[in-house]
Amino acid sequence: MNGIHDMGGMHGFGPIVREADEPVFHHEWEGKALALARIALAGGLFNLDEFRHVMERMPPVQYLSISYYERWLEGAIALLAEKGVISADEFTARLTALAEAGS
């Protein structure tokens, strides 16, 4: 499928932006998102092809507007819901509870 992820040869994305002395992770949550996805992969909650595919079938506007590790996070959340591991309602309820506890 010719999806948004298949970027080879596309035009119009502008110059390559580099960062001097770039850290491995820019935010603590990035390392955690990577670790959670890797543990889910290692534990067989989903496989690598499924994980790539869930990111590749994101709506193109979302794919382009979120950061790399957000794609990992949102891909894992979506896949775990599809697999029946964590339902969308369960996730939303936990998110709400954490937000209320933190405010």
């Binding site: 949550w29 543990i39 964590i86 998110l95």
Partner: peptide
């Protein structure tokens, strides 16, 4: 918001 979504996923797992 993203950090909170990571925490939600982590706490459920």
């Amino acid at each position: 918001d993203v950090a909170l979504r990571v925490r939600a996923l982590e706490s459920l797992l």
